[in-house]
Computed example of a mutant assay.
Amino acid sequence: MAELTQKKITDAEWEVMRVVWTNGQATSREIISVLQEKMDWKQATVKTLIGRLVDKGLLATEPIGNKFIYSANVSEQESVGGATEDLLAHVCTKKVGSTIAELIERATLSHADVALLEQVIAAKKLTAVAEVKCMCTPGQCNCKQNGCVHKEESPDGK
């Protein structure tokens, strides 16, 4: 499964995968029905996307009569985890905290979501380091050119 989570899923392919993840398995007709309503995509577009996902090994096919049943070879959680790792790999390690903070600010969260985040942060405090080291190649960020410009502030702003 780890090899499959490393395969890139395009934004359009995510739409197909979400239908399959939600239903556990689906026919092309079921996938087309959902995506025609949500995205106004044509049948041929959806079938092309399904074919790409099968070629990537992300969807399995099972023939039943004259139709195919599609199921995911990778879980939604694994795929989201891979996408998260991919996002964070594109950010200076010193900016990961502020990137996560921005994601939280932009998201609509329930009280349960906020409570979960508070638990994760409380646990993370136990293993937090005094300073995150920049892992960028010189020229990819300002840390190594101008000294550290991404200094972490304490919660009281100092």
Rank of each mutant, 00 (worst) to 15 (best):
N73V: 10
A123C: 01
L126K: 14
D86A: 15
I9L: 15
L4Y: 11
L53N: 05
V19R: 06
V74E: 09
D86Q: 13
I32V: 15
R106S: 06
C136D: 01
A122T: 08
L49K: 11
C148I: 00
T99G: 09
T22L: 15
V20E: 06
E152Q: 05
M1P: 06
T10Y: 10
D40M: 10
L117R: 00
L58M: 13
K158A: 01
D86K: 13
L116G: 00
E131R: 01
P138R: 09
C92I: 00
E131I: 01
L53K: 02
L116S: 00
G65L: 08
K67T: 13
E131K: 06
A101W: 02
I121S: 03
A89N: 15
G157M: 02
N23H: 10
K125C: 02
I31K: 10
P138W: 06
K158I: 05
G147I: 03
T84C: 09
T48C: 09
K124M: 08
K95L: 12
K144I: 04
A122V: 01
T5H: 10
M17W: 04
K67N: 10
N73I: 09
S98C: 08
W41F: 10
L103P: 00
E62P: 02
K151N: 09
T22A: 15
E13C: 08
P63S: 08
S28R: 13
T61Y: 04
G65D: 10
K67E: 13
A2F: 13
R52K: 11
E78Q: 15
P138V: 09
